[in-house]
Amino acid sequence: MKLLIIEDEHLLAETMMAYLNKEGYQCEWVDNLEKAKTKSWDYEYDCLVVDVNLPDGKGFEVVKQLKEMRSDCGIIIISAKHALDDKIYGLEIGADDYLTKPFDLVELNARIKSILRRRNFNAQNTIVFNEIEVFPNDKNVKVNNEFIKLTKKEYDLLLYFITNLHRVIPKSSIAEHLWGDQMDMADSYDFIYSHLKNLRKKILKKNGKDYIQTVYGVGYKFTDE
């Protein structure tokens, strides 16, 4: 999977690349609009991560160019502005998703994966982790080949974990993923705990293993290591 990161802030781009490379993506990075336009013209990428504010113009230009090329590359727009207009405009011209700075890398990763999954629906569209199989189209989950019934939040949580395997995920990132930034954080931690408890119970019931590790004071980790 090839990604192109268009971001003028070197440190930020560097961090994003470090994280996404570990996820097994091939990442390339450009720091201005012109280079971004040339790169995305010359090569084919699976997903583009575009910052709106670039030194030589708006990141929207790349999105427009890709749409003119009828490329089916996924596009995530990143903006420092919490402006609804930017978001609406970005999605209107064909971007797949929108993130505001500061975002969690876990969240970015989850969004990229979700886009890639949607783009790829010819292939078998399930995510398998050991005995757990997730069907993103129907929002169903099988454990040891048996369907388990999850609530929407439990499903979101499981998918989030499975797209971010073996990672320490801070509680605040989970909370933001599930409820956005409107929820009072202190409350949401109790929530996460209760949802996790139920999720764990449901998986164990079908003789699944408990992959959810608590990282004390930090958050959780979904891993079989």
């Binding site: 802030e9 994003m16 420092a80 700075k101 500061p102 969690d104 801070p170 990132s173």
Partner: peptide, 14 residues
């Protein structure tokens, strides 16, 4: 402020 915050946040995550 959001860009430096993004850098801090992401570095911490790493």
């Amino acid at each position: 402020i959001q860009t430096p915050l993004a850098i801090i946040k992401n570095k911490i995550e790493l």
